[in-house]
Design a protein around this nucleic acid. Sequence first.
DNA 1: TTGACGAGTATACACTGTATACCTATAATG
DNA 2: CATTATAGGTATACAGTGTATACTCGTCAA
Lengths: 236, 236
Amino acid sequence: MVRNKNDQQPEGNPNQKGSLNREAIAAQALHLADTEGIDAVSFRRLAQEFEVTAMAIYRYVDNKDDLLDAMTESMLASFDVSAQQETDWRDQVRGLIYALRQLLLTHPSGRSLLSRRALPSTNRLRIFEASLGILRDAGFEPQEAFLIFEHILNQVVSLVVTGDGYVKGAEEERRLWGAKLLAFYGSLPKQEYPRLVETAPNIAASVDMDHHFKFGADLLMAGVEAFAASKPPRKL
Amino acid sequence: MVRNKNDQQPEGNPNQKGSLNREAIAAQALHLADTEGIDAVSFRRLAQEFEVTAMAIYRYVDNKDDLLDAMTESMLASFDVSAQQETDWRDQVRGLIYALRQLLLTHPSGRSLLSRRALPSTNRLRIFEASLGILRDAGFEPQEAFLIFEHILNQVVSLVVTGDGYVKGAEEERRLWGAKLLAFYGSLPKQEYPRLVETAPNIAASVDMDHHFKFGADLLMAGVEAFAASKPPRKL
DNA sequence: TTGACGAGTATACACTGTATACCTATAATG
DNA sequence: CATTATAGGTATACAGTGTATACTCGTCAA
């Protein structure tokens, strides 16, 4: 047997990431997903960053699914719904929308993480509960509140992170993609695709988040408010 | 060299799938994705269904990304936006929504396919153009039309196929998941999560598509109509 | 007859998640 | 103190994945 190759520690350098534990692993994995895409998150890659073997991670995480759960929790840990205590429910909902946006801007991998079918853990439950509270207080029935919240979450997700491959800070790549879209849609045969050609600049501009998002958020709010108005006048 | 192991064809059975070609591959891959999930689509698996080597597929498909493109095209081939020629734009939009729903019911893998960041091919362009046409005729500006269409598409997708792992016809599994959700949310501590507990039945019921969808579609339409109403009175 | 070419095979490489068996330094216990 | 248990980590292996490269045919044209 040729085992015991490196019995003693090579150098006494303390692991700068701190000792291995579930939270640290989840945080590192989340950071990896946000900066290099969700596909970059693998046991071997993660282990390498902790200067450790892939299997060592299984001490703290059941399997990949559990790892993704832990990442989700890590992402949602610092998220506080009730940060802003507005009086008008419209402002509260709008606040929720923009808080979710901020969350997804810092964590683009949220798209992948939040759309997994899994039973939620504490942080997600907390947010879910608080959001339902806002909508219930606004006068919506339980089912309506649930559906509206889902509506909002889905819409915000797809408004902020366009496409699956989005990673944090990839400004240059993003700009390039916008140019590519403009070139593509702009050069389509005009008589076959008149609408697409005229809309090409807008399609391309959709990679610019701020403007795009404000527009989408307004549309979203318009829907919720219209729905509220179409109900028996019980709203606050 | 130990090549040429099986020189002659084992049996003379004609490939029941027909001779290999791009369309057949795409169709088969799409079917596979719809029935066993998008992860079941691999070159080796696909090749096996055609009784062929994995590398043979590369004759007709550049790489996996191109395969997914081909699948998307295959899925959208039979989709016709202008099937229903309603006069009222509201009915047209509603028709579009329900047509998209039907598409995603037959092809649950559409969620994965449609949310990829890629330049669209002909079928997708055709649908895009037609949809923009409807919205432009309704009086929306180019940018508005584009954003509303995205809004609609995203919302329908997330309304129809909840979660990533959805496959066609998995009725039993779906029912089980609903029961699991009900048990989970229903048994949360009531004083910590009052809203979630009261909403538990609705959350569980969201696996029942028909009811869930009608509700979501109404909310969606309410948003679009409200947005239309908030504009200078130019709508038809 | 030769040669090109289309279609498919064989093999290999670097990845992935994860099961199993092992080692070893520390802590608990007789 | 001596022994044993255990927590934390390593090593290896297996079945998958996408795909690059090289090869082998059968058919058809010059």
